[in-house]
Simulated assay, not measured.
Amino acid sequence: MYRARAYSASSSTSPLASDTIARREPTGRDVQIEILYCGVCHSDLHYVRDEWHDAMPAVYPCVPGHEIIGRVTRTGPDVGALRAGDLVGVGCLVDSDHDCPNCREGLEQFCPNMVLTYGSPDSHGTAPVTYGGYSDSVVVDERFVVRIPSNLDPAAAAPLLCAGITTYSPMRHWRVGPGKKVGVVGLGGLGHMGVKFAHALGAHTVVFTTSESKRDDAIRLGADEVVLSKDANRMKAHAGSFDFILDCVSANHDVNSYINLLTRDGNLTLVGAPEKPLPVAAFALIFGRRSLSGSPIGGIAETQEMFDFCGQHRITSDVEVIPIQKINEAYDRLLRSDVKYRFCIDMASLRSE
């Protein structure tokens, strides 16, 4: 066991502050990683403030962060392909049971015994719960570590480990590609990645937004069209024409207005998570054999596939890089949607304290 530098919260109302935490020494198939960058996800804020108490009660002190980019510094005796110096990533998962039907299919994100990067019981006994990437190092089973293409900016690649795979996975599942018409609802941290992937996959990409001011940015990111969702005539003009719609909105909204835009056998997938249930009109689904589904992150193999795709197409997230000392300010800005489109922490700032 060793001590690592980190930023942690001691309660749901306290700011994140400098701390030291316990990390296990690498054993077996473990790799120790020096963390270079860690993306900031809205989930981090939810967990720190215990806003998911009923589903995932926070345990304090908590160290968030599940968009980790770093370099391997040490490896356990049974590690196979990874070596010291490799540029790697760790996302939302750090372990699973490896034996359930989901794991055997490479779908670790659905494992009933998955271990989240932060906030899950620590089976190694190093700490009460797992600690995330707001730290200078982490130790992870090599099976949950992915390689990062050398041509990607590591800071801009960090959010791919959550926002990236969350949008890439459902597009692959629903076979987004050339000849498909795809909608992306909401142009934020998730939505901007959805636009980039839909465009790179060869689909005709349409962004739905409530803000005219986002039109130019949507086009820059790869959208072929931009539709103001408040314009009833423009919405009606697209009725029954979409093969797939990715809904990235976490606020309450009318999902039926988008279901009506689907063609026969079209699908709308929710990746945003509104706090309250969304009313769904049954007839909008029944007539047209349309479907409404949800999707989390992808499995480890699919996450590696995504990074290889991103390396091929030079896709990264649009990030604002911050020092760790500005993380509390960044959380306040997240609440105001004051970022284009993701924050990423430069962990050199933590080592300089």
Rank of each mutant, 00 (worst) to 15 (best):
L335H: 08
H199F: 01
G294T: 13
V271I: 15
H313G: 00
G133F: 02
C38F: 03
V195W: 02
R314T: 14
R172G: 00
T75E: 00
V182F: 05
A84Q: 14
G194H: 02
N328D: 12
G91D: 10
M1Q: 06
D224I: 06
S229T: 02
R23E: 13
S295I: 07
E34D: 14
E329S: 08
S241K: 14
F283K: 02
A156P: 01
T75S: 10
C38H: 09
L45W: 13
I33Y: 03
C41Q: 06
M1V: 07
V176I: 13
I324W: 00
S135I: 02
R290G: 04
S211M: 03
A348N: 15
L190K: 10
L45G: 03
R175S: 14
C111Q: 09
G294D: 01
T205A: 06
D30S: 11
Q304M: 04
G311P: 03
F197N: 09
A251K: 06
T75V: 15
I345K: 01
S8L: 09
V139D: 05
S135C: 04
N260L: 03
D97H: 12
A330Y: 12
V249D: 10
L270P: 00
D86P: 02
P77E: 15
L161N: 09
G70A: 12
F309V: 12
V129M: 11
P64L: 01
L201Q: 13
T130I: 04
L190Y: 08
S293F: 01
P154W: 09
G125R: 10
H192L: 07
E34Q: 14
N113L: 05
A84N: 14
P15S: 03
P26H: 01
G272L: 13
V226Y: 08
Y118A: 06
R104K: 15
V40K: 11
G240D: 13
N260P: 03
N252K: 12
A163D: 11
V226P: 01
S257A: 15
L201P: 02
P277W: 13
N260T: 06
A237C: 01
D332S: 08
R49H: 13
N113Y: 01
